[in-house]
């Protein structure tokens, strides 16, 4: 046990150090000078940090960690390595949900809208899982394929409604992940996704058993349906939160868990914390990248991750076979 602990702590320190470094870089980089030298004497710089940079950085870390763990849970539920909330209709359903809330109760508060989004995400993901479990298990690529197209169909239906209702601007905000609008007081809901990560960690053993299939789960005395629901709630709430607060961020939930489970295996108890780490670092890193590629303009993190994540996805698909 101690040998394993020793083996784990060194990369643990490395990862913690890397994330901390990204965190500091994220505080300093961007429009508006917050260089370290200025921080020593200028209170204005500190104001900028607390009002904008720190919330933005925290939002990226929370959203990244949440989405990565949601992806890990999703993969256990679907028993398929290549699914995640944006490729299973979850995010698209959440966007449709918040759209409906905006249409029907325009004056409802952000938490209420988020609840609506979560409910829609729950429904949309349940449909996906019901179909995914009926697809033949010997064709593992069928499930993500179905999920991608299912998400696209849901997304275009929602977009059609948004178009008709002249809400297309809002819809773009929900569907394109972006941290530039994050300010103090406008991201705090995202802390709930940290709670969801904790929930996944708490149920890690049972979620791992769930990934072994229905028969094994029942054989080991698990309440299969209840665990399925718990997993769905984790995935849906995280998705809804990110969609409402910062917008869709693709591929984090796919790439981070795959990178981690490749090295550590599918035991969620072991993989979940690392997945959260990698997801947070990936999201934060891409956000920083988006800030410097076309300085002083910003490129949304969703756009960056769409490219980076899709490339990594292809690598995951073919890397193993080579």
């Amino acid at each position: 046990m101690t040998a394993i602990a020793a083996r784990l702590t060194r990369p643990g320190f490395a990862a913690g150090g890397a994330l901390a470094l990204l965190f500091v870089v994220s505080l300093v980089v961007g429009v508006g000078d917050v260089s370290l030298s200025r921080l020593t004497h200028d209170p204005e710089a500190w104001r900028l940090v607390f009002a904008s940079r720190l919330p933005r950085t925290l939002a990226a870390v929370l959203a990244g960690a949440g989405l990565a763990v949601a992806g890990l849970v999703m993969q256990a539920l679907a028993r398929n390595r290549f699914v995640e909330p944006t490729t299973a209709g979850t995010d698209q359903s959440a966007a449709a949900g918040v759209l409906l809330m905006t249409l029907l109760w325009p004056s409802s508060s952000l938490p209420v809208k988020t609840a609506g989004a979560a409910a829609a995400a729950l429904a949309g993901t349940s449909v996906f899982l019901a179909v995914a479990h009926r697809l033949p298990p010997n064709q593992p690529f069928l499930v993500p394929l179905f999920g991608l197209i299912y998400g696209a169909v849901l997304g275009s239906a929602a977009m059609f409604v948004a178009w008709q209702a002249d809400l297309i601007q809002f819809f773009e905000i929900w569907t394109r992940g972006e941290f530039s609008g994050v300010l103090r007081g406008r991201y705090e809901l995202l802390w709930l996704s940290a709670a969801m990560v904790a929930l996944a960690w708490w149920a890690a053993d049972r979620l791992t058993i769930l990934s072994l299939g229905r028969d094994v789960s029942i054989g080991l005395g698990l309440d299969y349906q209840a665990m399925m629901r718990l997993g769905l709630v984790i995935v849906s709430v995280v998705s809804a939160l990110t969609v409402v607060v910062v917008g869709m961020i693709p591929f984090v939930g796919l790439v981070a868990p795959n990178l981690v489970t490749r090295a550590l295996g599918d035991d969620l108890r072991r993989a979940a914390p690392w997945t959260a780490f990698v997801g947070a670092a990936l999201t934060l890193g891409c956000d920083i990248l988006g800030r410097i590629v076309r300085y002083p303009y910003e490129i949304p993190v969703g756009t960056i991750l769409g490219a980076v994540g899709a490339a990594l996805f292809l690598w995951l698909l073919f890397g193993r076979r080579a």
């Binding site: 298990p137 058993i209 072994l212 080991l220 489970t261 035991d267």
Partner: peptide, 24 residues
């Protein structure tokens, strides 16, 4: 109960898998 068609495609170590037998 051990079922016939246990297509466990999971990336679990053998020790981890066996240990789940202790879960109950």
């Amino acid at each position: 109960i051990l079922r016939q068609d246990n297509g466990v495609a999971s990336r679990l170590r053998v020790r981890e898998l066996v240990a789940f037998g202790r879960f109950p």
